[in-house]
Nucleic acid binder design. Sequence first.
DNA 1: CGGAATCCCATACGATACTG
DNA 2: CAGTATCGTATGGGATTCCG
Lengths: 108, 108
Amino acid sequence: MRPNCDESIECPCPPVGLIDVVGKKWAMCVVTLLGRNGAVRFGPIQRCLSAVSPATLTSTLRALEHEGLVRRVPLADAGTTHSAYQLTVTGDALYRCLLPLASWLRRS
Amino acid sequence: MRPNCDESIECPCPPVGLIDVVGKKWAMCVVTLLGRNGAVRFGPIQRCLSAVSPATLTSTLRALEHEGLVRRVPLADAGTTHSAYQLTVTGDALYRCLLPLASWLRRS
DNA sequence: CGGAATCCCATACGATACTG
DNA sequence: CAGTATCGTATGGGATTCCG
């Protein structure tokens, strides 16, 4: 997976891994969402993101959890099931790195 | 495709489009590579990026061209076919936005 | 050298239905 | 509410081959 630089030109390399981490369709969207709002529950996230299918959202959240970017917070709340998701310290660092990128996208 | 915010939480939205632009496996890698090295020819790019298949690299470059991030520069060079790729002004702006992200990836 | 054409496969994603 | 289970499809991407 890693580029092997046999050329005199400089080879960046890192960005390849970035795609694996945040290349999922909704991953950066979720990170940005949580970065702005702190802990958010499953339902609101889903409704906010174009009503992404629950299966896809679950997959995205699990991936982000696995990368240590997001933490799941169960909320013991009188009978019904509740839980929320929030960024870890690492996830928040990534979020701040994404800010210039987000503003670049809003260009033009 | 666009998230529709029916919640009180803040909805970022832009990052969804980002995936379409730079979410391709090698897109950001190419942007970073060109950002560091200026104009680079097809062969060196390919060899530098883990020998990515020519079909995939072509697809990536065409997508970046279509987004106005990369420009193809034909080099009329004595018989044989030569060409190089370099970032446009917009592409360079994106490249600079990617820098913090790239350093984040090199963490740990 | 710089691609284009073709084939093939893995899988990400969406839609839907269902459960504790 | 917060997911899980299935299914079907689209497509990104690798390998290979061939061409000007």
